[in-house]
Design a protein around this nucleic acid. Structure first.
Lengths: 213, 213, 213, 213
DNA sequence: GATGAATGAGATTTCATTCAT
DNA sequence: TATGAATGAAATCTCATTCAT
């Protein structure tokens, strides 16, 4: 009983080792240019062993997605819980996404990948759907913040909680992705610092939802 | 003189034919899953001939990018010129981007591709830089609209014209891309219609920049 | 003593279970397309355990061959014993082979496999030789039937007992194998029913050996 | 005009060269154990080039089948035409098949392969069906020989031309295949020479169809 | 200018088999 | 005895790109 437990733990550890090795390679080269050969080498295992733990290259990539998703969700949960007021909750949601993108740019990219290529994923990949479901459930939860803000007289009356949170979520993640792609150029071309621009983004979004104060 | 001119014209015509054939295939299958073979077939030419006109698959894809870019820029130019007021100019800018995404989703995607994969592009690809330069130049021009809005007392005092237009541009294009990826789910999950959400997005953004109305 | 005996019995039982599981899978998919994994699953054992009982995939397949061989030999033995006259003994030999092919087409195929691929079998496979030896010994026995038939004035004088029985054996098994491969086409193309053709085959062979009656 | 013709000829020549190289390897190792790598090496071409001429390993193997089939059909045609009498035509048909098996044992085996594995062939393989159709058409033609024999009072009245020729064809090809698999053992075990056994086979088959002589 | 032919360099995935426990 | 884990060694097929004509 202790034995089978230990075995189980060890198997999970190896799984995690493989994922870590895969991250190393995927993060450097992207999905397409990474080969199972490269991952095997990094993991110091044979290619065949990889297939013992993951049915396909895609599934291995998806394991990384799950890691990233878990981190992001936890960060957002914490952020919302810690913030004292509704306004700060909403703002800290934005800041947390930005923080995630900054601290884990590669996870952010993997999550992007599955969004963008959802249509092309091999059939029989229901796990990704579960992930999207979780995302939608979270959106609903956050829409409660807008709702609450409206009740408090904080948020504009004319906003629809669900619609607006969807727009903000899509906008802001889109902004972050694009922004860091050209961050350096923006600096050299416009003299705009990273943090300044983030602040401008927070300001625009919050202005967009809050009532005249 | 007339002869070489005609030759030139014919060469350009063939180039355009190839690009059109390539569009046909790329739009159906995406960059990775499209083969030069497929394009050659569509163009009724040999693969080798393709290489007479384009140095690589990527460069051919880039020619499509240029077409898309030209269309988008012209649409925006027209939109701004036609709108009578500053506020309407800004709003019509947003609506034009949305219109472009809707009418030319494939061009939109190609433009995305080059933004996202810029880092991985084979070296010796300066043309993409020129394209990005044009984009930045346009951003600067549109920042004048914000500037003008501020002068008119229309736009919030605390906004920086350049920063805010950058944010808005990145946000809104990001929103559009993501939105259409999940448009159907949003409808079935939240009962949200496409146009409603777009309107909510316009509202949020305009609210974000305009002063008390 | 009783213990080791029981152990022995249990081991043999497990061996037979494995063979049965292997049959299930091999019969469905053929030798090449069957994997040890599939057999292990069917047997509810691990792949490694399979190798405890059989040195290789081929040897496991051979165990099936032996089962088939045993059945066939017993059927023939019975047939010859039951038939009252020499002529009927010979004819029942043919009918028994046809019966075996019909009732156990999969065993027939396995036996085929080892005949056809004998040359390619991995070295160190002497058991197959023993099996072939048994086959040849049987041929000799049956040649006695021809001999006897000659003595009885039943069989043509000019036939050599050994040679003719070899020819008949090889011919008739070959006929059966080929016949059932194209049985359906024969019906639809020539309107020939299975039993009619078998009867024609018996007639031709018996005509070939019997004297004018 | 002459140019494109020459090109065509050269392409066909190369195709034939590839087939010849493939024969070399397939004949040594059989279908399964032959790899495209091996054939490429033998042909002094790259693997990719092989796929320029043949869609798959199977199709390349099938090209060999076609060669063998053509040879066999021509040999049989000649044999029947040359033989002066009906009886000799029938006998020479048998002798020709035996001759083919002896001179081209590898082609014989390839033809076998496609008969045996017909069911497993990848879909979209209609060419093999055409080949089988040709075979059935030939059977019909040869059944005319039996018919003619009956008219001449040469062949037994109770035989059905079509059925009997089918039986003879299936029997005799089956006999040849099996016989050469164990030819050596037969010699050492029974002291039976190859030619003797063939003669016995001819005798048995001809006895089976001819009337009292 | 146009192309048919050729290929280098993989890519993913499979599987019989072994071995430490 | 039983097995989970690991792997070496392929195998088929693909594709962007080049080059002689």
């Amino acid at each position: 009983m202790g034995i089978s437990e230990r075995k189980e733990r060890e198997k999970e550890r190896r799984r995690q080792e493989i994922i870590s090795a895969a991250e190393h390679v995927f993060f450097r080269n992207g999905f397409e240019k990474t080969t199972m050969e490269m991952i095997a080498e990094q993991a110091e295992l044979s290619k065949a062993t990889l297939y013992l733990y993951f049915k396909s290259k895609e599934e291995l990539y998806f394991a990384i997605h799950l890691r990233g998703e878990a981190i992001l969700l936890e960060m957002m949960e914490n952020a919302v819980n810690r913030a004292p007021s509704t306004e700060e909750k909403i703002l800290s949601l934005l800041k947390t996404i930005a923080d995630f993108k900054k601290r884990y740019p590669d996870y952010f990219e993997v999550i992007e990948y599955f969004h963008i290529n959802r249509a092309l994923l091999k059939s029989g990949f229901e796990k990704i759907e579960e992930s999207f479901k979780r995302e939608r459930k979270n959106l609903k939860r956050w829409s409660d913040l807008i709702e609450q803000g409206k009740r408090e007289g904080l948020v504009r009356e004319d906003l629809d909680p669900v619609k607006s949170i969807i727009v903000i979520w899509l906008q802001f993640t889109g902004f972050l992705q694009r922004f860091y792609l050209i961050c350096d150029e923006l600096k050299s071309e416009f003299g705009v610092e990273e943090d300044e621009l983030l602040e401008e983004a927070y300001k625009l979004i919050m202005n967009g939802i809050l009532r005249r104060e």
